[in-house]
Design a protein around this nucleic acid. Sequence first.
DNA 1: TGCTCCATGTCAGTAGTCTGACATAGCGTG
DNA 2: CACGCTATGTCAGACTACTGACATGGAGCA
Lengths: 152, 152
Amino acid sequence: MEQETVGDLALSVGYVLKQVHASLRTAMDEVLRPLDLTVPQYACLELLGQHPGLSNSELARRAFVTRQSMNLVVHRLQERGLLTRPDQATHGRARPTELTHDGHTVLHKASVAVRAVEKELFSPLSRQQQHRLREDLTACVTASHTTNRPRA
Amino acid sequence: MEQETVGDLALSVGYVLKQVHASLRTAMDEVLRPLDLTVPQYACLELLGQHPGLSNSELARRAFVTRQSMNLVVHRLQERGLLTRPDQATHGRARPTELTHDGHTVLHKASVAVRAVEKELFSPLSRQQQHRLREDLTACVTASHTTNRPRA
DNA sequence: TGCTCCATGTCAGTAGTCTGACATAGCGTG
DNA sequence: CACGCTATGTCAGACTACTGACATGGAGCA
């Protein structure tokens, strides 16, 4: 027989997942604050660092926020001179965004700090366990993308 | 040598974790909407179902939100008659909150729906893998609680 | 060509959450 | 007893993210 409801929240994978996510989020906020960056702003920079030329909508999808929210993030980063965006789109309406020199500099500092946070958070797990954890989580999202609409 | 920055976001445990969390959050929102419940509201009910008599601050900690946010959640659920809260505190200032009969009814429906969502999301993993995943995640949060301040 | 459909960008309004602040109740210690 | 410390509840304000809506540019098709 299968129990329909969760007996104990600590035994719910979803609850523990949320707990780890909250810890990661808090820790990231702390290390990004000295750089005057929010988590979505860092996500935007990181995405552009690895995939230059992404549009605003594409950034939004990959950062798991709406286009409108990402639009504000992009505008503020643009005001700070961390990224560039052509005034006119070359092809459609999508305007490819890229990091400036300052953007790359800030991103590197932030990326190092965030990497350290992740390393600390997952330190109880061995390298092999971390790899396995990532594989398992990846399997879940790829499966949900096939059953639901694959947004990315 | 250790790489300081993440080469590919898909290889970052934190990024995949956020991805799974986003999927879970979205799916929970969808199934809770027919019940006119938000995720924090469901979390509040679930916590009270398993631990009757929790105070507002305690609910906030276990739901990973601030006291102020949880205060609004509790008030709205109280207006809907799903939970009761004494007007005066018996001992300190903490007022123990408990579910009403309607609260238990709504909670049961919601809990069944959420349980189904989790089961679906983690369906790519075997029962053993899910258990292992939960164990690994739990290890991370317990470790972070010892290094940082143990809020709970 | 003209039409539909879709994706992108953007604007306005709304709702949720957070930070900061203050008052109160209990506990421990001088 | 008095004082400081902590925890809880609550209020006010600001910020963030979301939903809904609209306009525009391109692709596909009759």
